[in-house]
């Protein structure tokens, strides 16, 4: 069995702070980490490797320093890694990202299962996985938290939804997006991390030409959506003491809560 796991390097958003004066993100000194859901996807893939000798390839698109998340994936036990890096990939929305990753997977060619995280903590869109499934014409299951079994070319999974969960059977090849599995993802092994830093590490570097993509379908140029502006959601607390009798204060409070879309 051959598995491709798609992973992303993201800023640790729990550390992201806003510049109080400019309202801009302070990116300096913020660690880059493996997106948490992607780490869970890696763990599920490696469990399949433990159980049925699957061969696991980790793929990431990003700047050259994103090689670190692939080294971590090798550290956890992946067999090979591919870094997609090219200036032409920059500024991609999920449309262009799914094109890029889709083409890379087509180049890898031989696979039974694609795993990725449900969503990335920097964007929270949960779009890239399904869009790759559509690009490749594969069946998909999102928010998977468990793989029950893999048998005779079919995979049985459970996936969460708003009301509870569903059990699905998908014919392979298929794409799963993963979140909230019950097992904590394993830590990388020291020896593997040492190997990952070596010249002969099992990491391939591909650019736009390698995956046979045109610049017009990549990055900012190939995107269908653009960021028009960014702004800070809220810089200062209102610090407002409500006045009146109890029903008045409560009614005013609930009004504000509704206005802020908190109910």
């Amino acid at each position: 069995m051959k598995i491709v796991v798609l992973i992303k390097q993201v800023p640790d958003t729990t550390e992201v702070k806003l510049d109080k004066k400019t309202g801009n993100l302070i990116r300096e000194g913020v660690d880059s980490i493996v997106n948490p859901d992607d780490r869970q996807a890696l763990e599920l893939a490696l469990q399949l490797k433990d159980d049925c000798q699957a061969m696991v390839t980790a793929v990431s698109m990003g700047p050259p320093q994103a090689v670190d998340v692939l080294s971590e994936a090798l550290g956890m036990g992946c067999d090979a890694a591919v870094l997609l890096t090219d200036r032409a990939f920059a500024g991609a929305d999920t449309w262009a990202t799914s094109t890029t990753l889709g083409k890379a997977i087509e180049k890898i060619g031989d696979f039974d299962l694609i795993l990725c995280g449900y969503q990335a903590i920097d964007g929270d869109t949960a779009q890239t996985g399904p869009q790759i499934a559509e690009y490749l014409g594969l069946p998909q299951a999102c928010y998977v938290d468990n793989i029950e079994n893999v048998e005779a070319g079919k995979i049985t999974v459970t996936r969460r939804n708003d009301e509870g969960y569903e059990r699905l059977s998908l014919t392979l090849p298929a794409l799963l997006t993963v979140s909230k599995i019950t097992v904590a993802p394993r830590y990388p092994m020291m020896g593997n991390l040492i190997d990952a830093g070596c010249e002969d590490a099992a990491i391939q570097i591909w650019n736009a030409v390698d995956i046979g993509a045109l610049n017009s379908e990549l990055g900012m140029e190939g995107s269908l959506t653009q960021v028009v502006k960014t702004f800070s959601p809220k810089t200062k607390r209102a610090g407002e003491l409500l006045e009146g009798d109890v029903p008045e204060m409560v009614s005013e409070l609930l009004g504000k809560v509704r206005q802020a879309h908190l109910i």
Binding site: T13, T14, D122, D124, Q226, T230, S232
Partner: peptide, 13 residues
Amino acid sequence: PAFGGNVMATIAS
């Protein structure tokens, strides 16, 4: 919202 709610982004298609 993006970046865990730290930033709001306005997007156009």
